[in-house]
């Protein structure tokens, strides 16, 4: 999932305090799971904002809504009319969702309430950790299912640096050294020989931005449709 972290209340307040009305819009998928921008968090933030505006002696109309996903156009239909009653959207989605709000609801302003952190997993309650940086060329099969691009602080693909200490990373004693993890996993799998694989050179050409992926299956009928017109 995409893991997001709510901005501080002061940051959020600062970004909306001069508005007359704002719709706090949650996203029911990734950021709901990581408890940053789902329906529950929308309720909380809206309540906090109402309280603050009262204390500050300003009148801001604060609405609440949550849609299934802010990264799919169709889900916006449910709130399109409601949105018209507000000056801006305070989006609690990831950065992709915030941008889609601005695009689908143009020319309404869309303001982010979260900082989008990474693609990750839930390691424990309230504890999320990055696992993938979407490099576009997944090499996990060769590394015991541990991503050297993400888990290694230097994204090293040909073995560790010399900085690993007590199994931890040079970057911090809080972080495991990816290469020690890779070694131990491959050992358990009896696949240590895989480490001898020939030299790898990273290919960053797949990481040009903005990325786009078009599934051919969908492309074909669309083209046929066009040529039939």
């Amino acid at each position: 999932m995409i893991v997001g972290e709510r901005k501080t209340f002061e940051q959020i307040w600062d970004s909306i305090k001069d508005l007359k009305s704002v719709l706090v819009l949650g996203c029911g998928t990734c950021v709901a799971v990581c408890q940053a921008g789902g329906e529950k968090e929308v309720g909380l933030l809206a309540a906090e904002l109402r309280m603050k505006s009262q204390l500050a002696g300003v009148t801001i109309k604060i609405g609440e809504a949550t849609i299934e996903r802010q990264c799919d156009r169709e889900f916006f239909d449910a709130i399109k009319d409601k949105a018209k009653e507000y000056e801006a959207i305070l989006s609690m989605a990831c950065g992709a969702g915030v941008q889609y709000c601005a695009e689908v609801l143009e020319p309404m302003r869309s303001i982010p309430a979260l900082d989008t952190r990474f693609i990750g997993v839930t390691e424990a309650q309230g504890n999320w950790a990055e696992r993938c940086r979407a490099c576009g060329n997944c090499v996990l099969a060769d590394y015991g299912g541990i991503c050297p691009m993400t888990i290694c602080a230097k994204s090293l693909v040909n073995g560790p640096c010399g900085g690993s200490k007590n199994g931890k990373c040079e970057a911090s004693q809080e972080k495991d050294c990816a290469w020690v993890l890779i070694y131990n996993r491959l050992k358990k799998q009896n696949r240590l020989v895989d480490l001898n694989k020939v030299l790898t050179v990273k290919d960053y050409s797949k990481q040009t931005h903005p990325g786009r992926y078009i599934n051919e299956v969908y492309l074909k009928p669309r083209m046929e449709e066009k040529s039939a017109q």
């Binding site: 560790p160 010399g162 200490k165 070694y183 131990n184």
Partner: peptide, 22 residues
């Protein structure tokens, strides 16, 4: 190149040797 013969765990040590070979 450099190598770190004092790597402290089995994994870190074996990986130093492996990287030396590479």
């Amino acid at each position: 190149a450099v190598v770190n013969p004092g790597a402290d765990t089995e994994a870190a040590y074996e990986l130093q040797i492996l990287k030396m070979e590479k």
